[in-house]
Design a protein around this nucleic acid. Structure first.
Lengths: 181, 181
DNA sequence: CCTTGATCGTAGTGACCACTGCACCTACGT
DNA sequence: ACGTAGGTGCAGTGGTCACTACGATCAAGG
């Protein structure tokens, strides 16, 4: 069983590539060239493009959940409180650049064609239910609050991407103005 | 000066195509096939792809501003008030389906490569300064409030796209909860 | 009439895409 | 020793992409 390349290496490089060039810039060829290998190897581990994309998004989401779980110390009462706790993690490009790409990638996938669209839907629904555990209150409002938190964070990340970190920070301080830190 | 096809017709069809298939699905070929003409005509009016994309986004933005100007009756004091006034217009897919695509397209462009990225930056900055006129208060906070409103609306539109109109509406009612209608 | 410029068709350019056929190699179990 | 299965290289497949060379058409102005 010869295996000079492992799937984990490929996936890590794919995360890097997606972070650098965006999801649409992630192709078999670009990933293979980045590693200096034949694209046949990439295809071997990820038989279809959909496999590659979904595994990248899943891995991004998993890393992000780990980082966020540390930030959510106390349960939040509203979506604003929840987003306020999450925002510093997302805004720190130092920590892991792929974080900022995750929601952005969801938007990209949502704008694409059917297979990516349903994948993004599943991901965001999974995220909403995952976020619920950090919210107090009854079931139905919690789901709505989780959705609102996602919407808020996604919007801030887009603003950060487009108008720069400073503008995003000013907007964030407005949104989180009347929330205890 | 023979002109069996006008540029306005092409642009209108391009908006339609982008609304149906997303911005990445808008190509010379797809647009030409939609109209039953040669793609040479499309290239004639939009010499580069960047021309086509930017004119589509500009037109989308212009239509959206017209629709929003009607919704902004009274000046708003905060980003939440502003977003609350804008949301019904954006959420009504009946009115013009391209509205929902606009911010989504910005996200897509932001995730792409350089020419689209700077285009999206210009657009969102233009939108922020346009929104300022509907806000009360001093200059600097107004810019930040406008950015926050854009972030909020973009997030809600993504949620609507991914989790459906009902979930987006529930999240919106949470966000706009403590704002006078 | 004849030029001129705008408009549009036919055909094709090279680049890139996701994906494949096939042969090969190398380690492992038996 | 030998088959077998996992892994890898080489060379392509058909398709789509943005964009172009070149010529035909057709209206209006001089």
């Amino acid at each position: 069983m010869g295996h000079r390349h492992s799937k984990e290496q490929l996936l890590a490089a794919a995360l890097e590539a997606a972070t650098d060039d965006g999801l649409s810039g992630l192709t078999y060829g670009s990933l293979a060239k980045r590693l200096g290998v034949s694209d046949r190897i990439v295809v071997y581990y990820f038989p279809t493009k959909h496999d590659l994309i979904s595994e990248v998004l899943l891995e991004m989401g998993a890393r992000l959940q780990v980082a966020l779980a540390d930030a959510f110390t106390a349960p939040a009462r509203t979506h604003v409180e929840l987003a306020r706790a999450a925002w510093p993690v997302l805004a720190q490009r130092r920590v892991d650049p792929t974080f900022a790409l995750f929601f952005e990638a969801l938007g990209l996938a949502a704008a694409g064609t059917q297979p990516y669209r349903s994948l993004a839907t599943e991901l965001v629904d999974g995220w909403a239910s995952w976020l619920e555990q950090y919210l107090e209150g009854d079931a139905e409002p919690r789901r709505a609050e989780a959705g609102a938190a996602i919407a808020l964070l996604d919007g801030l990340l887009l603003l950060r991407q487009l108008s720069g970190p400073a503008a995003a920070e000013r907007a964030a301080s407005r949104i989180f103005r009347d929330v205890a830190p």
